[in-house]
Amino acid sequence: MTLPQRIALSSFWLSHLTFWLTLALSMAWGVTDICIPYLTGCTSITATGIPDPQAFIFRGGLIAACVLFIVWWYCMQAWLIEIAPERPIWTVRYMVTAGIISSVCLIIATAVLRPDKGNLPWILHTVGAALFFLISLAVQTRITYWLKHLAKRGVDIGSSLPQKFILVYAQWFFLGVMIVLQVADSDDRWKNVVEWWMALLIGLFYLTSYRDWADFRLTDTE
């Protein structure tokens, strides 16, 4: 397994194992009902990371995963430069910067979580998390279209483009749903469902590069 493949795998699994483990612990200790939040929205991702000791796992896992996301974006840039015959458009060249900004937003959103909900800086957390989702979606969409552009020119971009399109379109769909829910001031349960799916889709996007990067070596020593 190459280093970029490891980064793709660990970006997804570290973040999602963190979510699922904290969710399982919340259920085991009766903090939340036993349910499937992707379907029922019984709890939000944030809620699983607030009470101790789940919060220890949550912040340790998710902040570490955010740094891996940054490395993933670096790998993506290096890969694009290696496979593409032309210099990428500026929006693609600056994707590492955008990836860093989105990851820092999520780091901030995660770091401010604390057990005493009353004193939690909710605005900072919400803005940080929302910016992460929005910027990640924007950059993932840009990359997907850039890959399509390269594929049309006969560049071997791997086999994950259809999956990437499905994941990106699904994220835009859920973003639209979230906007409608916010405007309609809907029940939190539906917002929770959207939040869980958005996080899963963003994570799966990182994972899709696993197969594409089978022959991509970041370093000579690999």
């Binding site: 902040i63 570490a64 740094v67 891996l68 490395v71 780091i107 901030i108 770091a111 401010v112 020593t221």
Partner: peptide
């Protein structure tokens, strides 16, 4: 708080950078 927010965000991120540094060493 609020020093704890900065502390955990910065040092957990730094720990991952240490891992990258060791990878560079290798």
């Amino acid at each position: 708080y609020p020093a704890a927010y900065v502390f955990r965000a910065g040092l957990i991120s730094a720990a991952v950078v240490f891992i990258l540094w060791w990878y560079c060493v290798r």
